[in-house]
Design a protein around this nucleic acid. Structure first.
Lengths: 196, 196
DNA sequence: ACCCCATATGCACATTGACGCATATGCGTC
DNA sequence: GACGCATATGCGTCAATGTGCATATGGGGT
């Protein structure tokens, strides 16, 4: 139950509604973990059933009533126990890498445009991280433990995006150099072997 | 159907049995994409039903008969069409990052040991990539398009592991510096607020 | 008046993934 | 001879995830 723990982790900051959590998973923690509102509401129900969070209904007019969820002591304990277990290193699982693995059996042009799009995407994200870093940590140091975690997170994010962006650039360059030597395949559906 | 396409991509190299594919997903492409043999066999059935691959049974004695799967022209086309679609940038989704996000609500010691384990893990993987790179690409250049893809892949893997390893080191250092200032919480299940 | 957007929650279905178990047999080891 | 291991394929179940749809309403644009 990884998403559940991510939600518990978010609720340590402050009590939130499912809607607010969904927005959080679209910005701060969402840089590392994607989850849409459906997943979040479903997980919230489970966490409530287990007694890890408590919902307080707030009656509103003009809008549907909202449910503000707060961590219970049991929830805090559960989070601590989860956090005390070793983490599992994830795989990268990027389709782009699968495409590169079969580079000689696919069309190069779409890969080039894809790489260019990805380059832009990762550059944007990198700039975003750097902007937040400069704003939140102009000194580059954290004052307390909470800040330290977020500082480290932002730094990792920034470096990751930078690295992938660099990779895209390099891949594009390499493809340009290669395209002179390699046979550029015309787009046809019936493709025979002959690669020589 | 991402795993299916990863399997098709593997079969462009050479025809393989499910067993061989499972081994492949435990080494080369498996550095980026994890899949156990169950997933692979299930996906192979689907791909066969769709006519993307063809199974040829080879009778064996002493071992169960094996099914060697070959890409059909339809399969090649499907792979090319899939590869022509833009890729979707994945999220990092690492539990360690969730732990760091809630660093002030959890116990530091388990995180330290976790970070040390992860440091070792990522260093090992980094060395592994570097070793393969030196062996397969001593010149650092690729001769054809297939090699280029694999060279790029290995380079990305190496850099990624290096980056995460550096991150772990930095996080450990930061936690050491911080531990002087921060209150080290004793391990108790009933935890009150008071963080001052 | 109509439509889209933001707020706020949720169900249903399909796909994907993780984990255990089952089958069949030869080979080496304790 | 019992046990684990490598080879080789597959079923069943459950958790996690992804996608579409449903509900309810006030406010702003056209």
């Amino acid at each position: 139950m990884a998403l559940g723990d991510a939600i518990l982790a978010c609720l340590t900051e402050r009590p939130m509604t499912g809607y607010e959590l969904a927005k959080t998973f679209d910005s701060s923690i969402g840089f590392f973990w994607k989850a849409d509102h459906q997943q979040i509401y479903r997980e919230l129900s489970k966490l409530r059933d287990r007694g890890y969070i408590q919902g307080r209904e707030v009656v509103q007019s003009g809008k549907p009533n909202k449910l503000i969820y707060t961590l219970t002591p049991e929830g805090r304990t559960a989070l601590r126990h989860w956090a005390a277990r070793p983490s599992t290193p994830p795989s990268i699982k990027d389709d782009l890498l699968v495409r590169l693995h079969a580079l000689d059996s696919i069309d190069i042009e779409p890969i080039r445009t894809d790489l260019m799009d990805r380059l832009e995407h990762h550059r944007d994200r990198h700039e975003n991280y750097e902007r937040i870093l400069k704003k939140r940590f102009p000194e580059g140091t954290a004052s307390d433990v909470l800040d330290l975690g977020n500082l480290l997170l932002l730094r990792l994010g920034a470096r990751h995006e930078q690295m992938v962006a660099d990779f895209c650039e390099e891949a594009l360059e390499a493809l340009s150099t290669m395209s002179g030597k390699a046979i550029v395949l015309p787009i046809e559906d019936s493709k025979r072997e002959g690669k020589g």
